[in-house]
């Protein structure tokens, strides 16, 4: 009996003493930085709808806008992000992000076809607000470079989602669906602006 108790105690002690690594911040380092950066545009609906709208509008306008807008956006967004990083204030960032959904969604909904440089300027101006919002988070990121790679890729993939949906404009019913999508994005933007969403 005594031996059995001793064995059980020895076994219990052995299992208690057996420790595995305690990880306080699983999302640290390169992986953590990348994941938090990748998720940043996705978990904010205001970012999501605006990014999808950029792709939608690019596809709606056709070539060369279909590639110019998704190239211009991350580059100007990086400029906005740099302003955020070095602490240059940009007024009404959240309002600008919400307004981007309203304006870009409305452009698609009403089938507005400006000259390509005007479209690029409109998208570029809004990219500064989005970039600033991401950039202010950058200094606190686990790994700033991995964070920025993550959010740039995530932004690009949201553009691609918009482009993929926007390619439906080749068919008459698809064009209606794309314009309806633009309308929904604009309405969502109004919701963000008024605080309903």
């Amino acid at each position: 009996m005594k031996t059995r108790h001793f064995s059980s105690l020895a076994l219990a002690t052995l299992l208690v003493v057996y420790t595995s690594t305690a990880i306080a911040h699983e999302g640290s380092g390169i992986t953590g930085g990348f994941i938090s950066g990748f998720l940043h545009p996705i978990v904010g609906w205001d970012h999501v709808v605006a990014m999808v709208a950029v792709g939608l509008w690019g596809a709606f306008l056709g070539s060369p806008a279909i590639w110019i807008l998704p190239v211009v956006f991350p580059l100007v967004m990086a400029f906005g992000g740099a302003l955020g990083v070095i602490g240059v204030p940009v007024p009404a960032v959240e309002t600008g992000i919400a307004a981007s959904a309203v304006v870009l969604g409305a452009m698609v909904a009403f089938a507005v076809r400006p000259a390509i440089w005007i479209a690029a300027v409109i998208v570029g101006v809004f990219a500064i607000f989005h970039g600033h919002a991401h950039g202010t988070e950058l200094p606190g990121a686990a790994n700033p470079l991995a964070y920025s790679i993550g959010f740039v890729i995530s932004t690009g993939l949201l553009h691609l989602s918009g482009i993929a949906f926007g390619l439906l404009v080749r068919w008459p019913a698809g064009k209606i669906a794309v314009q309806a999508g633009g309308g929904l994005i604009a309405l969502a933007g109004v919701g963000f602006l008024t605080g309903i969403l």
Partner: peptide, 13 residues
């Protein structure tokens, strides 16, 4: 453009 954007941001940092 993604590479340029990511590099520019961390360069600014």
């Amino acid at each position: 453009s993604w590479v340029a954007a990511s590099s520019l941001l961390v360069l600014a940092l």
